[in-house]
């Protein structure tokens, strides 16, 4: 299950096992609600449980990046495995977000 926590203006989104179009709408909605209501500056996407992601996941990250980057916020990806890193690199997202261990 996905999970959302706000700590020190950082929104941490724990992504589900499979990030596809089916899951993406709810994730965008939940994240945006917290970004608007909890003074979120930065967003961290945690891929620890994630084994599959398609271009819908790229859409989620780009959408949140657009929302917070105009206020100087940053987006981070953590615990991304090889497959997820491949998607992040192929989409060019690695140039605008920070990929960490």
């Amino acid at each position: 299950m996905e999970d959302y926590k706000v700590i020190d203006h950082y929104l941490c989104v724990k992504l589900p096992e499979e990030v596809d179009h089916h899951k993406s709408e709810a994730i965008c909605r939940n994240a945006d609600r917290l970004i608007a209501s909890q003074q979120v500056n930065n967003v961290v996407f945690d891929f620890e449980d994630t084994k599959f992601m398609d271009s819908s996941g790229v859409g989620i990250i780009i959408g949140r990046y657009k929302k917070i980057s105009c206020f100087g916020g940053k987006v981070f990806a953590i615990h991304a495995d090889r497959q997820i890193r491949r998607i992040l690199q192929m989409s060019g997202l690695n140039k605008i977000i920070e990929i960490m261990e």
């Binding site: 993406s24 965008c28 398609d54 271009s55 819908s56 790229v58 859409g59 989620i60 780009i62 959408g63 998607i87 192929m90 989409s91």
Partner: peptide, 10 residues
């Protein structure tokens, strides 16, 4: 719909 536009590219 916040699609990335990368479906066919992928």
């Amino acid at each position: 719909l916040e699609r990335s536009g990368m479906g066919f590219s992928f």
